[in-house]
Write a protein that binds this DNA or RNA. Structure first.
Lengths: 102, 102
DNA sequence: TTGACATATTGACGACTATCGATATAATAG
DNA sequence: CTATTATATCGATAGTCGTCAATATGTCAA
């Protein structure tokens, strides 16, 4: 996964707010919209979910007429590992075992 | 450090190319411009260095009429640790010891 | 002080993107 | 089949951002 694509997916307040909501739970689009409490409306949330999905940062599951989303923690961890491997080689071995990440 | 600011600093091809050059070495602005091999010119590099500096991702040192930059690997590692702590709690303990990062 | 070099800043322009309202698509209930 | 609910897509708009040419600032040499 390209580190620039990863960074771009994270480079937005609303998207990170959505990611926080999706951490460890499956939520429908409406749930997310409600959780953002009027900050943005449904089409905007769908737009961000699409971007996150393209970056592989969320998983999707269809349930009835809903689409349930959740955060892909493993993918996120791998991308962070790649960042450290690329830009912080002095810390790479110390903090993140390569063989576990790649 | 705000994860959104961190992500925005990384969310550009040219900026990541500059970061790669600055990994483990001190380079002047002209060195970086040369290293990018005509891709962008000097004002653009200065612009990106300013952004990276504001994000705390590079350190600066004055030497004569030059300004030498280098990548702050520790800062980058800390930010990645914060991302994992925030968005991948299931992997946090496993991959990155908190007390070493924060 | 003057000239040359290194870097930063400014202003303009184009590309991208976050957001919205409106609408289309999909799936269920009656 | 029709109505309703859930989500995605479209078109438009405003704001952000990367880039450049031109210029300003700062530093050293002669």
């Amino acid at each position: 996964m390209d580190p620039v694509t990863f960074a771009k997916a994270l480079a937005d307040d609303t998207r990170q707010a959505i990611m926080k909501q999706l951490c460890c739970v499956w939520l429908s689009v409406s749930d997310i919209v409600d959780g953002l409490d009027g900050r943005v409306n449904q089409p905007t949330v769908s737009h961000h979910l699409k971007k996150l999905e393209e970056a592989g940062l969320v998983d999707v599951r269809k349930e009835g007429r809903q689409r349930l989303y959740t955060l892909n923690q493993e993918r996120l961890t791998m991308c962070c590992g790649l960042l450290i491997e690329t830009f912080a080689p002095d810390y790479h071995g110390a903090y993140i075992p390569v063989e576990e990440i790649e």
